[in-house]
Nucleic acid binder design. Structure first.
Lengths: 215, 215
DNA sequence: GGGCTTTTCCCCCACATGGGGGAGGCGCGT
DNA sequence: ACGCGCCTCCCCCATGTGGGGGAAAAGCCC
């Protein structure tokens, strides 16, 4: 890519891609190195073309932008991903960030905002547009209130926390300095209160409800 | 609390509380309805005093601000929590939002920024200061790159995703329209590649690495 | 064509897990 | 003093899970 910042466009709508390309190409130091109409193409093109920044639409056929972002950012020397969407009230913000996106941008952004956003993420900085912040923080409220998770006793909470770290009953017993039979009782109570069938479902509920957070 | 916006201060340092109180009390429409020196006191005071906004320090004795925030925001008609910290490079941002905080603020913020932040969150809006955005987005990079999670085949990825939703092998088999023996093979491969001992650890790794996100 | 990976399916077997009971002690509020 | 919830520990038992093998078909790269 020699000089400047190489950008890969990933959007299923031709009109959008054309508009973006015109804006980017008319900007000194920026150039479009490739275009993809779906997530799968975006991933393979990004690997061969090695752009600096990928403008990734959230909603695309076959593989959506979130999955594509996840696939891209796990690799070494991965490009920065700037997620673009039309939706203002967008639940994907949170998921996109978890998937490894460097920023979030609305399609209604002005040309100069777009250019600035590309330069910012290419420089390694992070970026969120105000509307994205609102939905991001709002996403926290979307943590499903798992019924019964508030009815856990302190000991049951301890056990669930350790379960959610992947410990076996024996390991939890050692950690809490009690017998394995005791742990089994607590685990059984936790499962009953959370309506979980097995410990895996309990751990899922713990994450979904925000009882534990990805560290 | 009759009129205006009632604020509860939760910070273990007297100097900080005093400074905050002076700023808030001198502002028309804002008043300090109570003060707490630790998380436990903050939770109980918030329940009795029912402030509109809680200024919550992250680091406090006994119960830290994150836990206190979690305890507060699960209730109905909970106050808005504005998390305050001295640390600019703060990993707690992400966790605080998951815990239900409405915003994040640095202690070095100017008085007028503080007042504005309180009014914003009291009005039901969300707020993140620029420095907090950076560490928030950076937190996504902190998703531990689980070694081997990128080596999963597409089918193994499918299986892991369903595991992370709490499905049993039989249910996964039904979902993917294959035999349970097939699912067992995939599960075994996933465990081996992720270095997990059982499915629970695999699910934990899936969440920790951002392979799946709390929906 | 000959490897290679991937996906599919099968056998046997050890074991942790989870469900069903029961039981004693302890703190706490009435 | 009594009840109640919580924590602790124990028994039996069905079974889902995971580890050890093996194997066939399909697609892919060289």
């Amino acid at each position: 890519m020699s000089e400047g910042i190489g950008v890969l466009l990933a959007d299923d709508e031709d009109l959008i891609r054309t508009g973006l390309r015109i804006i980017i190409e008319s900007e000194p130091g920026l150039s479009v190195v490739g275009e993809a109409a779906d997530g799968a193409a975006a991933v393979s093109l990004a690997r061969s073309l090695r752009p600096d920044v990928v403008l990734m639409d959230v909603r695309m056929p076959a593989v959506d932008g979130i999955q594509a972002t996840r696939a891209l950012t796990v690799a070494e020397g991965a490009p920065k991903v700037l997620v673009v969407t039309t939706l203002e009230n967008d639940d994907y913000v949170y998921e996109a960030l978890r998937a490894g996106a460097s920023g979030f941008l609305l399609k209604r952004a002005r040309a100069d905002e777009l250019v600035q956003a590309i330069r910012v993420v290419a420089a390694g900085e992070s970026l969120l547009f105000p509307a994205a912040i609102r939905s991001l923080v709002a996403a926290r409220g979307a943590a499903r209130a798992v019924p019964g998770i508030g009815r856990l006793t302190t000991r049951e909470g301890d056990v669930l926390r350790l379960m959610a770290r992947g410990l076996s009953n024996a390991e939890i017993a050692a950690e809490l300095v009690v017998g394995t039979e005791t742990v089994k009782t607590h685990v059984g109570n936790v499962l009953a209160k959370l309506g979980a069938r097995d410990r895996t479902q309990a751990v899922v509920a713990a994450y979904e409800s925000g009882f534990v957070s990805p560290r």
